[in-house]
Simulated assay, not measured.
Amino acid sequence: MNAQMKRGFLEVCVLASISRQDSYGYQIVKQVPRILQLTESTLYPLLKRLEAAGFLTVYSVEHNGRLRKYYHITDAGIQHINEFLREQNDIIAIYEYVKRGATS
């Protein structure tokens, strides 16, 4: 998958993963579709950007004697997912246009 396209999908997939339940880094990596090839080194800068944008909040919980950061989606994060979903028809129209051009 194209790197630019992947980056756009990663953001909403991470938010979608967190929208199901509060989560931590390793768990998010496991939940996001494999085709996106999300790694922890890619995830943490993305989580920081999403937090800075107000799409999620962070809190810590002790787990096995260590603090683990959990991420919680905000109303703005849910709104961002909904905006992405509203664009679905536009994205499908672009794919259909490209498909028609490629098969002509």
Score class of each variant (00 low, 15 high):
79 Q>I: 13
62 E>L: 13
60 S>P: 03
26 Y>V: 14
21 Q>G: 00
25 G>F: 08
67 L>M: 06
48 K>W: 10
89 N>L: 08
25 G>W: 11
70 Y>R: 05
73 I>E: 04
67 L>S: 05
56 L>T: 07
74 T>L: 02
67 L>H: 06
58 V>C: 13
61 V>Q: 13
81 I>L: 04
42 T>E: 00
32 V>H: 10
69 K>A: 07
40 E>Y: 06
70 Y>E: 15
95 Y>I: 07
80 H>Q: 08
44 Y>C: 00
32 V>Q: 14
37 Q>N: 03
93 A>E: 06
90 D>R: 07
95 Y>R: 03
60 S>V: 13
83 E>H: 12
55 F>K: 02
83 E>S: 06
22 D>Y: 02
83 E>C: 06
50 L>E: 08
80 H>C: 03
73 I>C: 06
25 G>Y: 03
43 L>E: 13
41 S>E: 15
91 I>E: 11
64 N>H: 03
80 H>E: 11
23 S>Q: 07
54 G>N: 03
28 I>G: 01
39 T>D: 01
45 P>E: 15
46 L>I: 11
94 I>K: 06
84 F>I: 12
57 T>L: 08
96 E>K: 10
95 Y>M: 05
97 Y>V: 00
38 L>C: 12
62 E>Y: 14
25 G>N: 08
84 F>T: 14
52 A>G: 01
28 I>W: 12
43 L>N: 06
53 A>V: 06
77 G>N: 02
89 N>I: 13
54 G>F: 13
84 F>P: 03
88 Q>A: 04
44 Y>D: 01
35 I>V: 07
53 A>P: 04
57 T>H: 09
68 R>Q: 13
91 I>H: 05
79 Q>A: 02
39 T>E: 10
58 V>F: 09
66 R>K: 07
48 K>F: 13
70 Y>Q: 10
42 T>M: 02
60 S>F: 10
46 L>H: 14
61 V>H: 04
39 T>S: 12
45 P>Y: 15
80 H>N: 10
49 R>M: 09
57 T>G: 09
21 Q>D: 10
86 R>H: 04
42 T>F: 11
67 L>T: 12
64 N>P: 00
83 E>Y: 14
49 R>A: 08
85 L>S: 03
69 K>Y: 08
83 E>R: 06
32 V>A: 11
80 H>G: 07
70 Y>C: 10
35 I>D: 14
86 R>G: 02
94 I>V: 09
80 H>D: 06
25 G>A: 10
94 I>H: 04
25 G>V: 15
68 R>L: 09
83 E>G: 05
78 I>K: 00
92 I>N: 03
76 A>C: 02
23 S>G: 01
62 E>I: 15
53 A>T: 08
61 V>M: 14
30 K>A: 12
23 S>F: 00
60 S>D: 11
83 E>F: 12
78 I>N: 01
30 K>D: 10
47 L>W: 11
44 Y>H: 05
55 F>Q: 07
47 L>T: 12
63 H>T: 14
66 R>H: 05
90 D>C: 11
29 V>M: 13
30 K>H: 08
64 N>L: 14
95 Y>P: 05
48 K>I: 13
25 G>K: 11
61 V>R: 14
26 Y>C: 04
